[in-house]
């Protein structure tokens, strides 16, 4: 992979985007608002220096609970984590100062053999809208429908933005971080009425293993400290 050439081309070409290298080494472009993204997308496909002809993946992101833990481990604790039915209390939040919803694209160029990740944030947290790239890469069709279905992100200009994965008549966007893992309704067959009925779930959410953030990774080889 001619990584340096791509890096140089990206840093010269991308105006209002932020270029960085992710932990896996992949160049990552980030737009804090969707303005400018669509023009850049067309360039990424057409420009002979990039030629990203294959859109591999479009992934919705919800940063609502980013950095929040279910059990604080840094201060000393008197009690362990109770594995009973548990409501997350005093969530600890690392400072997340960017918009809540984003869309992450992964591209590869089969001609030049390099990869790129693009993250585009939607400005409005209540009504996230991002322009559709369907007209540039047709592969975006179902990926954008999926992100719309699971995260409620709207793609402006998508020809057929319908739900894709969830049930017919489903309410809500299940992959948002404030959507409970156990769901909101349960389905059963009602013999009296002779049909299936939806009811609010009768079980309570239960966390078996708490989410914790520790500094354990300082022991990893590339972190330098042993």
């Amino acid at each position: 992979m001619n990584d340096e050439a791509l890096w140089a081309a990206l840093s010269s070409a991308e105006g209002n985007a932020h270029l960085s290298r992710a932990r896996d080494g992949m160049p990552t472009l980030e737009w804090l608002q969707p303005a400018g993204w669509l023009e850049a997308a067309a360039l990424l496909k057409a420009d002979p220096r990039f030629q990203f002809d294959l859109l591999l993946d479009v992934s919705g992101m919800d940063y609502h609970a980013y950095g929040q833990v279910e059990w604080r481990t840094e201060p000393a604790t008197r009690s362990g984590f109770s594995r009973g039915v548990y409501e997350s209390e005093q969530p600890y939040c690392a400072s997340w100062n960017k918009p809540r919803f984003a869309v992450v694209y992964h591209f590869v160029s089969t001609v030049l053999n390099h990869r790129l990740r693009v993250r585009v944030f939607a400005e409005n947290n209540d009504m996230p809208v991002v322009p559709s790239v369907f007209s540039i890469w047709n592969a975006a069709n179902w990926y954008e429908r999926e992100a719309f279905d699971l995260f409620g992100i709207h793609f402006e200009g998508h020809p057929d933005l319908r739900r894709l994965l969830t049930d017919y008549g489903f309410v809500g966007h299940p992959f948002r971080k404030d959507f409970p893992l156990i769901g909101e309704v349960e389905l059963r067959y009602d013999a009296k009425e002779g049909r299936c009925v939806y009811e609010p779930v009768s079980i309570a959410p239960r966390t078996l293993v708490p989410k914790v953030i520790r500094m354990d990774n300082r022991y990893l080889p590339d972190e330098g400290v042993s």
Binding site: A22, R23, D24, M26, T28, L56, D57, S59, M61, Y66, G67, V69, A94, V104, H106, V108, R115, R117, V209, K211, V212, I213, R214, M215, D216, N217, L220, E223
Partner: peptide
């Protein structure tokens, strides 16, 4: 716990490119 960051790993799966995109906020 895994260091904060993101990674995309792809393999040539029998059906095509199978990729996993992971985002970590430093948790377990």
């Amino acid at each position: 716990t895994v260091p904060e960051g993101e990674a995309y790993a792809a393999v040539e799966h029998p059906k095509g490119e199978f990729g996993v995109y992971l985002v970590s906020d430093g948790a377990n």
